[in-house]
């Protein structure tokens, strides 16, 4: 027998979530989900952004395979991805260094976190003149110790590494704060038990502390990977992809192809974006699978 009241209630519970979600979901679909489909579609066309679109099928992707600038950007993206990971261990060690309760330590912690709060545009500008060959502090230090100064941002060999080092500055601060929060929650009884078993230093860190920091490590890796693949601001500010395109990454190359002085090639740009998206999807899938397992466990 269906009770009227419970029948109504059941329906109410079915409708309510959709009403609550409607505005957010609608905007999200319009501005995020639909544009992804839109870009994939554009990538099959030759289009200057204004005139007629011409269907060229896989044409843009075929062109990509022969485009040296594309390979250079892809390679730089992998260098970013690998070196950016340094933020995780360095952040951990900084957190260990700061995880004390001496006087004023809270202010120290916030000051160390500082680089993450300021805009990447400012970080980019700051490092541009830190690296400046004429008066940059870096070269003054190098010359002080008897070395010869180098124009990092004007040298094809070093430019990408120079930008990554600048990017590591805020990213390390981010990882540090994740670990500091994680260290707060480490079970002190386990540490004591470890001490009784004569675990010290590295052993303690590896066998007792790190396993408990797993959630922090996970988030640190996720945000660092995303940060590395999203790298655009720093490249744009510090070198605009130069010298001679040697510091381009996919995100920047896409922007350059789509609209810049080199002409508006929306279709080609979209194809580059799709490749970047597919690389990112690997990580997104990995993240979602982990989330799914956690949800199931609860």
């Amino acid at each position: 027998m269906i009770n009227m009241n419970s029948y109504f209630k059941k329906n109410k519970l079915k409708i309510a979530p959709w009403l609550f979600m409607a505005p957010g979901l609608l905007m999200f679909i319009t501005y995020v989900i639909w544009p992804i489909a839109g870009s994939i579609n554009i990538s099959f066309y030759d289009w200057d952004g204004l005139g007629e679109k011409t269907w060229i099928g896989m044409g843009n992707y075929v062109e990509l395979f022969d485009d040296e600038a594309f390979y250079k950007s892809l390679k730089n993206n992998f260098i970013w991805l690998i070196l950016y990971m340094l933020a995780v261990p360095i952040g951990l060690f900084m957190a260990l260094f700061l995880n004390q309760s001496v006087r004023g330590i809270r202010i120290y912690k916030s000051m160390f976190f500082f680089p993450f709060v300021i805009s990447q545009v400012v970080v980019g500008l700051v490092f541009s003149w830190f690296y400046d060959p004429n008066f940059g502090l870096l070269n003054i230090v190098i010359e002080f110790f008897g070395g010869t100064g180098i124009a990092i941002l004007a040298d094809e060999r070093y430019v990408t590494y120079g930008i990554i080092a600048a990017g590591l500055w805020p990213q390390t601060a981010y990882c540090m704060i994740l670990y500091l929060t994680g260290l707060n929650a480490v079970d002190s009884e386990q540490i004591e038990a470890g001490r009784l078993d004569n675990a010290k230093g590295w052993k303690m860190l590896w066998y007792i502390i790190l396993p408990q920091l797993k959630p922090a490590t996970f988030i640190a890796i996720v945000v660092t990977v995303i940060g590395a693949l999203r790298s655009f601001d720093m490249v744009s500010i510090m070198t605009a992809g130069g010298p001679w395109g040697s510091s381009r990454v996919l995100a920047y190359y896409m922007y350059e192809k789509s609209f810049s002085e080199y002409g508006f090639r929306m279709g080609y740009g979209a194809a580059i974006a799709v490749i970047l998206f597919l690389i990112m999807m690997v990580y997104i899938t990995f993240f979602l699978l982990k989330m799914y397992r956690d949800e199931k466990a609860n």
Partner: peptide, 8 residues
């Protein structure tokens, strides 16, 4: 998602 896939 990377911003570039949304850009155009």
């Amino acid at each position: 998602v990377p911003f570039q896939i949304l850009m155009v």
